[in-house]
């Protein structure tokens, strides 16, 4: 669905721009003078562009698919989906900000950090969050 142009133009791109603005706010808290143009985040020191696959949307959709597919009461699914969405959002902003500073201080590590450290961490974070939701919140607690 995300590959369809109308979905990409009306949902994915605005969402990615939103992630860029969240990251800009975080960077400005650290004293950067960051600005956003489209999906590019730049400051006098470095610039990153957030593409599809880097916006956290796939991890969010995989997490929500897992929550929806699991046999749990719908109220717990709803709470899990919303909480997971927010948690992965926060995690992804940390990822973008971390990559920005990787680019500023150790640019030779940017590629490695971007592709296989943070992408792997995003997948593992989504799985860990889902396991936690299932184990702690999705099912009724056993009677003692």
């Amino acid at each position: 669905m995300l590959a369809l142009r109308p979905v990409n133009d009306r949902l994915v791109n605005p969402y990615t721009t939103f992630v860029a603005h969240e990251s800009r706010l975080m960077l400005n808290l650290f004293g950067e003078r960051a600005t956003v143009t489209g999906q590019s985040l730049s400051s006098p020191r470095f610039a990153v562009t957030i593409y599809n696959g880097c916006n956290g949307l796939e991890a969010i959709l995989i997490f929500i698919s897992g929550v929806v597919a699991f046999p749990a009461p719908w109220q717990r699914k709803l709470i899990g989906a919303v909480a997971g969405f927010l948690a992965i959002q926060v995690f992804n902003v940390v990822r973008v900000v971390s990559l920005f500073y990787t680019g500023v201080y150790v640019p030779q590590w940017f590629g490695v950090s971007h592709i296989f450290v943070w992408q792997s961490l995003v997948i593992i974070f989504g799985v860990a969050l889902w396991l936690l939701w299932v184990r702690r919140y999705a099912l009724p607690r056993p009677a003692r």
Binding site: G53, E58, A59, I123, G126, V127, L131, R135
Partner: peptide, 25 residues
């Protein structure tokens, strides 16, 4: 994108279902 991000999770569950179900409780 979908295969790259989702397949490791699916293969993990498919390869070791007993352990994953045990993790789930």
């Amino acid at each position: 994108i979908p295969v790259t991000f989702a397949l490791p999770l699916l293969l993990w569950v498919a390869a070791y279902p007993d352990d994953v179900f045990s993790l789930l409780g």
